[in-house]
């Protein structure tokens, strides 16, 4: 028998699309998951601005040098929180597939493994873009209500800045996506993966520049925040929202303006993406190769 009488292999892009389509279908079919995963960020945005909005003015003015509405200040933190939650669900999807047997089913098909995982990752990127858009829109509505319609400037760097915010959110999500998939591979258990992701979420957010300028926070938080990726993600998004260099954990003045924040922050995030992404890809490869574990 010279060739298999049945079954053909698709080009890489087609394999990618098949998997992207499957994950998108599952996501759209469960709007509850998409909405409920936005619930926390929305509650944070709404309650934090309501509770702290009136008392943070001084801290913001003293560190940023201008009068910034806390809503505008907080939206970048919520954007990053949204990316964090979306990324953590990636591992949950993987565990789901392992438990339902779909993981093995896909492995025994002739699809390229890299295309299988890229397709799934792209569906998560799309989800992040949609959710971040919702958060940005909601922030604008809150600000509009708060200021009685006189919003003024919302994203200081304009539409290019909005595109930049999506880009940063995705760069930020990659390392946590990798981590959540590693957790899924280690535990192979849905509950552990969910608990693990939730467990690190709040500390990561609070011990960072997410909710207040680092300068007004206790010394130990400032120290820890330096090593917290959330700080870099939030500061980069915030730099685009406010149009100023506000990364304090690394001080670089070579690029001018917001680039003094964007370049080092993205450098840190992409570096982290490469390292953790590399480990995740390596582990997935190992888990999916035919070698006996």
């Amino acid at each position: 028998m010279s060739s298999p009488p049945a079954g053909t292999r698709n080009p890489f892009v087609v394999d990618c699309w098949i998997n992207l389509e499957r994950w998108l279908r599952k996501t759209v079919r469960n709007p509850f998951v998409v909405v409920s995963s936005l619930l926390n960020p929305i509650i944070f945005l709404w309650l934090f601005t309501a509770v702290f909005g009136s008392v943070t003015g001084g801290a913001l003015t003293s560190t940023l040098g201008e009068n910034v509405n806390y809503i505008t200040y907080l939206v970048p933190a919520i954007v990053i929180q949204t990316a964090l939650i979306a990324a953590s669900s990636s591992g949950i999807g993987l565990v789901d597939d392992i438990e339902s047997g779909m993981f093995e089913k896909v492995l025994v098909s002739p699809m390229r493994r890299s295309a299988v995982f890229l397709g799934k990752a792209l569906s998560e990127v799309l989800r992040i873009v949609v959710q971040v858009s919702i958060v940005l829109g909601l922030g604008y509505v809150l600000l509009w209500a708060d200021t009685g319609g006189a919003v003024g400037t919302y994203v200081a760097t304009g539409w290019p800045g909005v595109v930049g915010i999506f880009f940063i959110s995705i760069c930020f999500a990659v390392w946590f996506t990798a981590l959540s998939n590693l957790m899924a591979l280690w535990t192979r258990d849905q509950e552990s993966t969910i608990i693990g992701a939730n467990l690190v979420q709040l500390p990561l957010l609070f011990v960072s520049s997410a909710f207040l300028p680092l300068a007004v926070l206790p010394g130990w938080i400032q120290t820890v925040a330096r090593f917290n990726p959330v700080t870099y993600g939030v500061d980069a998004v915030r730099a685009l929202m406010l149009g100023q260099d506000l990364l304090t954990v690394i001080s670089i003045n070579w690029f001018g303006g917001v680039w003094n924040t964007l370049v080092p922050a993205l450098g840190v995030l992409i570096g982290l993406d490469l390292v953790l992404g590399g480990i995740a890809v390596w582990s997935l490869n190992r888990a999916t190769s035919a070698d006996v574990e």
Partner: peptide, 12 residues
Amino acid sequence: YMAQETSIDEEL
């Protein structure tokens, strides 16, 4: 190949 455990995507 049909695995021992039923392998389908229940959300589809």
